[in-house]
Design a protein around this nucleic acid. Structure first.
Length: 1029
RNA sequence: GGGCGUUUGGCUCAGUUGGUUAGAGCAUCUCGUUUACACCGAGAGGGUCGGGGGUUCGAGUCCCUCAACGCCCACCA
């Protein structure tokens, strides 16, 4: 049997993928004879291509799905992508701006959405290609997209349901307004950045100040321009109590404080007390004025606004007095509601000031700030300006400042929904691994904050609401009454709600259950207008586990595959996504969406930062696949990712001219081109946009971390090559366990152990352990020992057939175990193995299936396991290692055969006797005497192996390098003496002997006496050596 | 400010319930073309486990504390 010298990963992968596809290996359908195992992919955003973080995520899912498929489950992995509303629209809008200098308004809604669909098509294709090249065994006949028709139907049904249950409501809320994208973004999409800013002190004149009262009140703010929307000033209702509370809080902290903290607290307390003394009289006065209903004049606009008492004004902060801008600050909004203050919105959606700002109308916020400061200065109402670091909220998507903004939004009421999702995790219906992530999930949900779901975007699921606003109560009810008479109303195709706002005007909201043009125009004919907003992208993501299976239709798939088995995701979307899937699944289907959630580590770059598209440090899995192959990519990721830590993956550019690897740095990772320091030529990166940049050949981004994995693939390939080279005369034979020699029994026992360990590891999501176990076994045991031992046996006719049978079985099992991690190389070898040895297995051979992918998972055969055999073989391995070590230190040429004597017990002799012949191949040694009576040579290189009662002697008569040997022996003496001293100390310690468990003490004594014997023996050899000179 | 996590040889990571001399891969050094593999084989050097304190006969492993780094959440006009 000939098998290529090299494993050609690229063409093999293409060919094998096609074969799997043609055979439908990854397709799944409800099958009553099997148990289902389901995974829904965390749908990647179509904002861009996948990076290695996704690579890891999908590798782990595929390992699970392939394992379960082999274990006999009906394994379904549902693929798909996410429309990622705001993120995708932002990317396309940014490009539109950069390349064509146009805004979305220049294009209009339909044209922009068309452009985004084009973008989506391009990246969806790219993503699916990446997944396929990685070998992901998704059921590709079931690709979903969160904005496709099936998902849209689910979104409509859900919205309708929640609206009917009054869990979706309309509210005026202060939202995070992105002035660039002109949409509200959720709290989760806001990031904070510390910036240098100023703290402006401003004076508000008191209206009709009485004698003894201050004529003006000082406040301090980082946002002076917002004063245009002020509707009050506030002071604490009980400043003295507030001061006392703060001071006593500090005292409380003192109890558990560290020395450094204590100093800090003492200083704070002192400052606070001083402040209290200085400021209390004024604050009390102001409080009295507030209670008296006094007013101040709003600078610049001249409006009279009240001074109010509200606990939000903390006496220990700022000037102790605070301006209240309800329409533009979340805290002020709450104050405004408590005090029924007017709420004045001074902003247009694009971030410029509106008519409420009077003379400042039309200015941007930045310009308005400058003019306001200038004008305050002119009016002598400006006090100190302090420098200060301020936390600037930015929109995660557009990176522009967020403005708190009062707007009408749809909300999902979270109280009951959140509770149901908390319960599912608290009572373990949904298990989260590792468990430490439970807390974050529960804490977040326990806040039960209502979920604002409106987005003022064009890309997404448009809200299925038609509204008639600004009506009187009777008008609204008349309209509603008409609708209620429709037959569609009674058949549940639409529903309505009447809503009154603070100003006393009424709105009628009508929700349609599903897409229905006729009904839509009927509703529109009543004068109702469709809400132009779309839903938060997480709304459709939250339905993913059931919408992909056909809900709201009661499909067979839904009945069979739902709830899904495991969700594999990364920790940063536990709240955003995982929690919402749980509550939506419970609400819609009445059942949890998945039984287990596995949170895997994140891939960081060489500088410790998470990989992401926006940072520019993302590594394209395809680049790694091109260079090292998909199996190496997968194995490398799986082995790297343990369960406790994120994993750092230093990445390099590979110069396309000279193949030099260039470490990625902060600077070059986002560059469009890089100059190679070696050959000085230029190459382009994935960020190259312009024609000029693109004219340079592209440098792949790779990581040498995958080299070891690639080598492993090669090792496996070659072990298979060797095996198959010796299978020309293979014929299936039945082998009896008891006829097999030790080395075969050892292999079978190890296979049993490894099968057990790997199965356990994968079941418990310990992918790294599974990979490591297989790597060690395949390389250090199967290749280094079993194959080496097999060499002489294969040329011995009496052993050849038996050896072939065990080798075939060993390779077969190894391939099965490795397949989920390295599907291509294993499937490829499997084909060759099938050609050479189609029937194989211990004890009874059977015909192997055509595809490894759908073959059975091995079982750990109990009868094959033997602890004593594994231990005995381990002794053999140690003796081999000992001989090799001496040979190396003596500089003995590899071709020289060294005579060796092994003194050991009767039982060890029985073990080693049949292994005698293997010492030559493995260690270049000829065993001249073996057993309890084995005699050392005249000039010995002794080696004692700890833990085993075996002494090994090499006859150095013709090889001796006295100096080297003397050095070696002296070093051994030192080592042994050091250990003996340690043990003697331990054993002479009265409390150790009396308090440590008896068996520990006994073991110490035993090993001490062993060491002493060894020492004596080595010293003797050393003396003999010196005497010889 | 609250929570979670991390800190082990040059690099990337293991280290199960505390118990002999703390492991692996990469890198380094020495030797090597033995009929699968130089993407290989053999051997070697290198860490006292972030600092300090404690519990214990015994601590990388448990407790306290300090420090650094990372992430999440909240946030002060």
């Amino acid at each position: 049997m000939t098998i290529p010298t090299r494993f050609e990963h690229t063409e093999t992968a293409i060919e094998i993928s096609k074969a799997w596809d043609d055979a439908g290996c990854a397709r799944a359908k409800p099958n009553p004879n099997k148990k289902p195992f389901t995974i829904v992919i965390p749908p990647p955003n179509v904002t861009g291509a996948l990076h290695l973080g996704h690579g890891l995520n999908n590798t782990l899912q595929d390992i699970l799905i392939r394992t379960k498929r082999m274990q006999g489950f009906e394994a379904l992995w549902v693929p798909g992508t996410d429309h990622a509303g705001i993120a995708t629209q932002a990317v396309v809008e940014r490009r539109l701006k950069e390349l064509e200098n146009k805004t979305r308004h220049d294009l209009g809604r339909d044209a922009l959405v068309k452009r985004i669909w084009d973008w989506k098509d391009q990246y969806e294709a790219r993503i699916i290609d990446q997944l396929k090249r990685m070998g992901c065994s998704c059921d590709w006949s079931r690709v979903r997209f969160t904005l496709d028709e099936q998902c849209a139907a689910a979104v409509r049904a859900t919205f309708f349901d929640l609206f009917s249950k009054k869990r979706i409501y309309r509210g005026k809320r202060l939202v995070n307004w992105d002035t660039f994208l002109q949409t509200a973004v959720s709290d989760d999409e806001v990031i904070n950045k510390t910036e240098k800013g100023h703290f402006y002190h401003i004076f508000y004149p008191v209206v009709d100040a009485k004698p003894g009262e201050p004529t003006r009140i000082e406040i301090a703010t980082t946002r002076p321009e917002t004063l245009l929307g002020d509707t009050a000033l506030a002071v604490h209702p009980d400043p003295e109590a507030a001061f006392k509370k703060s001071i006593s809080d500090l005292q409380e902290k003192l109890v558990n404080a560290s020395p450094n903290e204590k100093i800090e607290i003492a200083l704070q307390t002192k400052a606070l007390e001083q402040r209290k003394t200085e400021m209390l009289p004024l604050l009390v006065k102001l409080r009295d004025m507030a209670l008296d209903g006094r007013c101040v004049t709003l600078p610049l606009l001249g409006r009279e606004i009240p001074l109010i008492a509200d606990p939000w004004a903390k006496p220990e902060m700022g000037t102790g007095c605070v301006k209240i801008t309800p329409a533009h600050d979340p805290n002020d909004y709450e104050v405004g509601r408590r005090a029924s203050l007017p709420m004045i919105n001074i902003l247009n959606p694009d971030g410029t000031l509106n008519a409420e700002a009077g003379p400042y109308e039309g200015l941007t916020i930045k310009k308005a700030r400058t003019s306001v400061i200038e004008d305050l200065e002119k009016n002598q109402l400006l006090g100190d300006i302090e420098d200060r670091d301020i936390e600037l909220p930015l929109s995660d998507r557009s990176k522009t400042p967020i403005e708190p903004y009062l707007a009408d939004q749809w909300f999902v009421a979270m109280d009951e929904l959140a509770q149901s999702a908390m319960d599912a995790v608290s009572d373990d219906r949904v298990k989260i691994f590792p468990v430490r992530y439970r807390k974050g999930y529960l804490d977040w949900l326990s806040e039960k904050r209502d979920w604002p779901v409106s987005r003022q975007l064009w890309w997404g699921h448009q809200i299925p609401i038609w509204a008639a606003t600004g009506k009187t109560q009777s008008e609204a009810e008349a309209l509603a009454g008409e609708i209620r008479n429709w037959s569609e109303y009674s058949s549940g195709k639409l529903t309505e709600q009447i809503d009154a706002d603070e100003a006393g005007t009424f709105s009628l909201f009508v929700c349609l259950r599903s897409e229905n043009r006729v009904l839509e125009s009927k509703v529109q004919s009543l004068g109702l207008v469709r809400d132009s907003d779309v839903l938060d992208t997480w709304f459709s993501s939250a339905l993913w586990p059931h919408s992909t299976l056909g809900w709201p239709e009661q499909t067979d798939e839904l009945a069979y595959f739902y709830p899904t088995s495991t969700l594999v995701t990364s920790r940063d979307i536990i709240t955003l996504w995982v929690a919402r899937m749980v509550l939506m699944g419970l609400n819609n289907v009445g059942e949890i969406p998945f039984h287990e959630v596995f949170i895997h580590p994140k891939i960081l770059d060489g500088m410790g930062e998470t990989m992401s598209k926006s940072k520019g440090n993302g590594v394209d899995p395809n680049d790694v696949v091109d260079k090292f192959g998909p199996d190496a990519l997968r194995f490398g990721l799986a082995r790297l990712a343990g369960d406790t830590q994120d994993v750092r993956l230093p990445v390099q550019y590979e110069c396309p001219h000279c193949e030099k690897l260039i470490d990625q740095t902060k600077k070059n990772q986002s560059a469009a081109t890089v100059d190679c320091p070696e050959c000085k030529k230029t190459f382009s990166t994935q960020w190259a946009e312009t024609a000029e940049d693109k004219s340079h050949p592209r440098g792949a981004v790779v990581s040498e971390r995958f080299e070891a994995a690639r080598n492993f693939v090669n090792k496996l390939w070659n072990a298979a090559r060797f095996t198959l080279m010796n299978f020309d005369d293979y014929s299936a034979t039945e082998v009896r366990l008891e006829d097999l020699p030790l080395e075969d029994r050892w292999l079978l026992s190890r296979l049993s152990t490894v099968t057990h360990d790997v199965t356990e590891a994968i079941n418990n999501y310990h992918f790294s352990d599974a990979s490591q176990t297989l790597y060690d076994f395949a390389w250090n045991e199967f290749c280094s020992f079993y194959v080496e031992i097999a060499k002489p046996r294969l040329s011995d006719e009496s052993q050849r057939a038996m050896t072939q049978a065990v080798m075939a079985h060993g390779l077969d099992t190894l391939l099965r175990l490795l397949h989920p991690i390295m599907p291509f190389v294993t499937e490829s070898i499997w084909r060759y193995l099938n050609k050479a040895a189609s029937e194989r297995g211990i004890p009874k051979p059977s015909l192997a299936p055509e595809f490894l992918m759908t073959a059975d998972w091995p079982t750990a055969v109990k009868d094959h396991y033997s602890e004593s055999i594994e231990r005995q073989f381990n002794e053999f391995q140690q003796v081999v290692g000992a001989i090799r070590s001496i040979r190396a230190s003596q500089g003995i040429k590899p071709k020289e055969i060294v005579p060796v004597a092994i003194r050991c017990s009767e039982s060890s002799m029985q073990l080693l006797e049949p292994m005698r012949i293997y010492f030559q191949g493995l260690a270049g040694a000829e065993i001249v005497s073996l057993g309890p009576d084995a005699k050392p040579f005249e000039i010995n290189a002794p080696l004692a192996i700890t833990g085993i009662d075996i002494d090994v002697y090499l006859d150095l008569a013709q090889f001796i390098d006295v100096e080297a040997e003397q050095g070696r022996l002296e070093k051994i003496v030192d080592q042994i003496v050091k250990q003996i001293t340690g043990k003697q100390q331990k054993l002479s310690n009265e409390s150790f002997v009396s308090r440590a468990p008896a068996d520990v003490v006994a073991k110490e004594r035993e090993s001490l006496s062993e060491l002493q014997q060894q020492l004596a023996s080595v010293k003797q050899d050393l003396q003999r050596l010196i005497a010889k000179m």
